[in-house]
Design a protein around this nucleic acid. Structure first.
Length: 299
DNA sequence: CAAGTGCCTTTATC
DNA sequence: AGATAAAGGCACT
């Protein structure tokens, strides 16, 4: 079940940055292989130069999941609007936005509310171990991401044991909604960014920021521009001049963004960077985070 | 090592 | 509309 993909020189790809930039929480690197689970299949992948090597994955899935058909160079041209994004692109060239499973993405970012990435990984791992189907891969015990049905049936008390805290109730409620309407999320692929976002905002535990993450990382609405505390920092550091002084002072305070403040920053991203603003977001986000930590701590 | 800070925010309430 | 508080606890310093 081994497969190799030889990347064309016109297809920038950086597997490490793609899997450690905070868009996905279920990949772990050991030696030079990344281990992950997609659907009911545990797979591993590594990149050596221009070659991607897979174990236990099929080609269609890989091309879709890693977005290999997306023309990154054209996207770079499109979002190339200022020296800051230019630097981020130069540094992390080949970072790709994945096309994740919408359900897994939805739960992941609901759990991400007010948590750091290390803690999110722990929660998602715990949820999978407790509620996900058991998979055996290379003598290791792996678990699929739990279905909506499995989480809908769970108790809030047990969900809290996975570290979810106040998110447990939201996850259970949303799991119920999704398990009653299995195509609800997939349908959003065919709607516009604005309409899909309205739909997602109906779900308990999904606000503007979480909706934008789901839209970007699983439904590939590339104009989505999620703004978390890091992106707020990025905007205050490099793009402050695009806003009134009064507004800048408001959002500089140590308080969460209001919905209208959030939308204002997110809209700025779309207007400044254009149709692929989401790509710009991920590069700037990753760039800012990596500046503040040692390379060895990356994961 | 302890105690403090921060976290890819949402919701309820006023 | 806009402000404010609460939420639950892990990971890092």
């Amino acid at each position: 079940m081994n497969m190799k993909i030889h990347l064309d020189p016109s297809t920038p790809m950086n597997l490490d940055e793609t899997l450690c930039c905070g868009q996905v929480f279920r990949w772990e690197k050991q030696e030079d292989w990344w281990y992950g689970v997609a659907g009911k299949r545990a797979i591993r992948v590594r990149q050596i130069g221009r070659v991607l090597e897979f174990e236990n994955a099929n080609k269609d899935f890989v091309e879709s999941y890693f977005g290999l058909n997306v023309d990154l160079r054209q996207i770079y041209t499109s979002i190339h609007k200022d020296p800051h994004i230019e630097e981020a692109i130069a540094r992390f060239r080949g970072l790709r936005i994945l096309r994740q499973d919408p359900w897994e993405c939805l739960v992941s970012f609901m759990c991400a509310t007010y948590k750091n990435i290390a803690a999110i990984k722990t929660m998602i791992s715990e949820l999978s171990h407790r509620y996900g189907d058991h998979i055996v891969f290379e003598k290791e015990n792996v678990h699929a991401f739990p279905t909506a049905e499995a989480l809908a049936k769970s108790s809030i008390t047990d969900l809290k044991k996975c570290g979810l805290g106040f998110r447990a109730k939201r996850v259970k409620l949303t799991a119920k909604v999704i398990s009653d309407d299995a195509t609800r999320l997939e349908r959003l692929r065919r709607t516009s960014y604005a309409e899909a976002k309205r739909e997602l905002l109906q779900l308990p535990g999904v606000g503007s920021k979480v909706a934008d993450c789901i839209l970007l990382f699983s439904l590939n609405k590339f104009e989505a521009f999620p703004v978390d505390v890091w992106m707020k920092r990025v905007i205050l550091r490099y793009y402050q001049a695009h806003f009134e002084k009064e507004f800048v002072e408001r959002i500089s305070e140590q308080k969460p963004l209001s919905t209208s403040q959030y939308e204002r920053l997110s809209r700025f991203g779309r207007e400044h960077f254009g149709n692929y603003a989401g790509y710009a977001q991920e590069y700037l986000y990753h760039y800012e985070r990596m500046k503040t930590r040692l390379p060895i701590l990356r994961a």
